[in-house]
């Protein structure tokens, strides 16, 4: 039976295909509409430029009334991203509005790459370098941008299974 969450996710997917925002993409995994794979391309004029960062988005039946769980599976170095890839972003927690859709989620995360918030750090080292040593910060980010390409090569062959465990390590 189709539920409001599943119906809405189909609509989100349709919209994302018809009217894709620049620099992000996403789609439900093959056999489960509640689990999506997404990619955010590092925004221009930021140290993340040219990176291809993979994420998973996990929805519950309460979507869109509750936010999904979003996690980077590509390695990330950013003041607001935890070591396990989860993201400290207000709209994914207490400021979630049911009017957000997948497109809005991905573009918000994209702009977080642009504008980190070093005042609520999830990664202390990244936050400190961002504030005090921008050059070193950019060097560390450049390293994970490089790594994000390796991810692609690794996963080209086995897209279907085991992607999460492999990329997450």
């Amino acid at each position: 039976m189709t539920t409001p969450a599943r119906r809405r996710l189909m609509r989100d997917f349709k919209r994302l295909q018809e009217d894709p925002p620049a620099g992000v993409s996403g789609a439900p995994s093959d056999n489960n509409i509640m689990l999506w794979n997404a990619v955010i391309f590092g925004p221009h004029d930021t140290p993340f430029e040219d990176g291809t960062f993979k994420l998973t988005i996990e929805f519950t039946e309460e979507y869109p009334n509750k936010p999904p769980t979003v996690r980077f599976i590509s390695k990330m170095f950013h003041p607001n991203v935890y070591a396990d890839g989860s993201i400290c972003l207000d709209i994914l927690q207490n400021r979630w509005s049911p009017t957000y859709d997948v497109s809005a989620i991905l573009t918000s995360i994209q702009s977080l790459l642009h504008d980190p918030n070093p005042n609520s750090p999830a990664n202390n080292e990244a936050a400190q370098l961002y504030r005090e040593n921008r050059r070193e910060y950019e060097k560390k980010v450049a390293a994970i941008v490089q790594e994000s390409w390796n991810d692609d090569e690794d996963e080209g062959e086995d897209e279907e299974d085991g992607e999460e465990s492999k990329a997450g390590s």
């Binding site: 070591a83 396990d84 927690q93 999830a122 202390n124």
Partner: peptide
């Protein structure tokens, strides 16, 4: 652990 995400525990 300041670098662990406790938000998810709270949400759970």
């Amino acid at each position: 652990d300041p670098e662990r995400n406790y938000d998810e525990d709270t949400l759970a």
